[in-house]
Design a protein around this nucleic acid. Structure first.
Lengths: 142, 142
DNA sequence: AATATTTATTTGCATATACAAACAATATCT
DNA sequence: AGATATTGTTTGTATATGCAAATAAATATT
């Protein structure tokens, strides 16, 4: 693999940001694999575990995903019997199943493992600066 | 939209990097829309225009995409009569069509427009620092 | 109260991307 | 030269994601 800093597009945030996201995604996938969950599924499920009854729209905001993506993720989590949705009028509430509750401690472990994994690869201080900087810029973007 | 810095996952690089990539992708899409090209198609096509005869594997490295993704992008560009592939043995060369060559100046404009657009939204110096920092970390990741 | 507007969620459709396997050709080794 | 390994590309299949439209319910307006 050509180093990012050697690619002809190294100065372009389009490539840098995409490449970073894909690499981090892959790292996260490794950590969550043992539970058979993709990172996005896992984080959504953790949100549901931490706030039972949470609504899809709120989850979408928290996870910075579109509502439709959250619907799709929920379909998968429901198939796996990890959440149930109850609809009252126009509102939907999402609840974790007992199976999901049992999984929670292992999920916390995966989170920790992921943090450890990427902090072993990246200088911790630089990583933390980077995240702050990315967040600041995310807030400036539409 | 909840600010990135207010989301419960604001400290997690998984979310930050994904959110950034999606936002930048959207910004880039706007710039390229007028030519009917998605950003990844556009950058691949520019590479082909700048290095006629380039091979898919090399393009994949430059664009930091997998070879199979490049194949898929090329299929689309071929459908649009913007590139042709010639295969000799196991090697493939990609060439721009005259139609693509005509498009080149407009493509350069889109690139510039995209740069301007995101630099109007983000403090230029901070953006440049961010890109450098992202590249450094990309190089540290597997 | 009837109509119009807004809000929350889901669907239909489309794009982007990758892994693993399949091919296909070339290079290496013996 | 023949067997084996390596390399470059494409396919089959799967995941992730979003936009725009469709639904459906709640709220506001007249």
């Amino acid at each position: 693999m050509v180093k990012a800093s050697e690619s002809r597009y190294h100065q372009c945030i389009y490539f840098s940001s995409n490449a970073l996201a894909r690499k981090i995604e892959k790292l996260a996938m490794e950590s969550w694999k043992k539970l058979g969950l993709a990172p996005s599924h896992a984080y959504l499920l953790m949100l549901v575990l931490e706030e039972p009854g949470v609504q899809p729209g709120y989850a979408a905001e928290e996870l910075q995903l579109s509502p439709s993506t959250v619907t799709r993720l929920l379909e998968k989590l429901e198939e796996k019997k990890l959440v149930v949705r109850t609809t009252e009028g126009k509102l939907t509430n999402i609840y974790p199943t007992p199976k999901a509750k049992e999984l929670y401690p292992q999920m916390k472990n995966c989170t920790r493992e992921f943090q450890e994994k990427y902090q072993s690869l990246i200088n911790e201080e630089e990583a933390s600066r980077l995240v702050k900087s990315i967040n600041r810029i995310n807030d400036q973007l539409p």
